[in-house]
Design a protein around this nucleic acid. Sequence first.
DNA 1: GTCCCACTTGAACACAGTGCAAGTCGCGAA
DNA 2: TTCGCGACTTGCACTGTGTTCAAGTGGGAC
Lengths: 249, 249
Amino acid sequence: MPRDTLTREQIVKAAIDLLDEEGLEGMNMRALGKRLGSAATAVYWHVGSKDNLITLAGDEVWHQIALPDLATIDWRTAATQMATDLHAMLTRHSWLVQAFGSYMIFGPGKARHDDHGYAIYEAAGFTGAQVDQAAATVFTFVLGNALVPAAAASFTRKLGRDGGNAEALMHESMAKAHEIAAQFPRLRARLDTAAEYAAAPDNTFQFGLQAILDGLEAQLSAPSTPSEQNPRRADRHYHEPSATPLTTP
Amino acid sequence: MPRDTLTREQIVKAAIDLLDEEGLEGMNMRALGKRLGSAATAVYWHVGSKDNLITLAGDEVWHQIALPDLATIDWRTAATQMATDLHAMLTRHSWLVQAFGSYMIFGPGKARHDDHGYAIYEAAGFTGAQVDQAAATVFTFVLGNALVPAAAASFTRKLGRDGGNAEALMHESMAKAHEIAAQFPRLRARLDTAAEYAAAPDNTFQFGLQAILDGLEAQLSAPSTPSEQNPRRADRHYHEPSATPLTTP
DNA sequence: GTCCCACTTGAACACAGTGCAAGTCGCGAA
DNA sequence: TTCGCGACTTGCACTGTGTTCAAGTGGGAC
C-alpha cells in the first residue's frame, strides 16, 4: 500500500475549487497547501509552478461542456447548446476568463471542445477558412460576454478582502459610477430604468447569440465563392481604424 | 514657480506606456517610479493605490476611440467604425483586456464611448432593452476577440522574462500544442494548412463583425412587438445548460 | 534488514504592494 | 527677511507570495 500521497488530479481539482471560491487573485499556493492538508511547497513537485497549475485547471473545466450529437440535431441547435454550455461553464468558473487573458490555455479539454465546434460549423455548410471564422465569432462572443461578470465577481471579492464593510465600499463605488453616467444623456436615461432592468431576466446573452447565428446563416445562403472568404460586405463597410493614440507632449 | 512635481496625468500616461511595454503583470510601482524619476512611493500620494492607477489608465485609453457622426453616415458604417477602432485600441493596449477581467473599469472615457454606442443602435431603430442588447453583443464580441491575442502577448513576455532563450521555450510550447491538436481530426487537418493560414491576412474580426451586424439588421426588419425583446427565436433554440460540473469523489 | 527513491517539509530568498515617519521645498504671512 | 505651513517626496520596513533547496521520511524491492 503506497503512502497516502498527493496526486496531480487531486491537486488540480482542489485548485479549481479554490479558484471558484477565491478567484484568480485570491488563490495562492499556501492556501492550496492548507486545503490539501500538506505543505504549500509539496505541490511544486507535482505541477512544477503555479502558472502550470492554472493552465492545467484552466483546461480541465472544458470537459464539463457536452458535445451535442450532430447526427440527431441540426447545427444551429447544436451551436446554441454548446455556446450556452460554455457560457454556463464560464459563469461557474469566472476565473477562467481572467486566466484566458494571461495564460495560453490549450490542452486536451479545450482541444476536444474546439474540435467539436469546428464540426458544427462544417455541418452548417461552411468551408475553408470560414469554418474557423464562424467558430471564432461565436466563441469570442461567449468569451467576451463572460468578461464583465468576471470583473464584477473579482471586484466584489476584493472589497470583501479589504475592509469589513464591503457594503459601504460597494455603495460608494456605485454612486461614483452613477455620477459619471449622469453626465451622458443615454446613460442617464438608463439610470432611471435601472431598477426595471434589474428585475427582468437577463437574456442579453441569448439575444446576442441568436443574432450572431442569424448572421452566420445569412452568410451561408449568400452567393459567394466557396472555399474562400467573401469579402464583399466587409469591404463595403471597411474602415481604417482612426490612429488616435495619446499625444506625447 | 511651483516645484517640478508629479501630476496625476503624467503618472497615468507613464503607467499606460509601461503597461504597453511590460504588460499587466510586468508593470510594478518601482519600475513606474524609476520611469518617472522619483521614488515608487511618491506615486501613492497622487493615485492612492496600484488598483486605482490601473483603473485610471484603463479608462483613459477609451478617449482614443473616435465617435462617428451619425448625422452624416449610416448606423452600420458607424458601428463598424467604432468596433474597428475599439479593436485597434485593444490591440495597442492589450493589458486592458486583462484588466477588464479584474477591475471594474468605468470612468468618463468609457462612459463617453458607451453613450455613443447606444446612440448608434438607437439610430439603427432598436428600442428599449434591445438597444442595450445590440450594443452589448457587438461590444462583447470585440472584447472577446482581443482576449486571445492578449494572452499571446502576455505569454511571450513571460517567456522573455524567464530564461534568456525564449525562442526554445516558445518552440517547445508550440510542439506540445501540436501534439495535442494532432489527436483531434479537425484540429489535425488545420495543422497542415496552418502555414497557409498564417500567410493570409487575418480578417476573422471583420468577418465576425459583419456577420453580427447582419444578424442585428435582420432582427430590425423582423416583425416583433416594439419596446420589448423578441423571444421567439431564442425560445425555439432554447437550451438549458447541461449541468456537468466535476464529480467530487 | 537495508537501500533506494518517490515524495514531503521548513527555512529562506527575492520581489511586490504599501504604511509610516521623517524629510524637503516653495510660497504666503508676519 | 524670516517663519512656518502645507504640498509633496523619500527610505525604511513590514507583509504576503512564488519558488528554491537541502534535509528528511517512509514504504517497497531486493
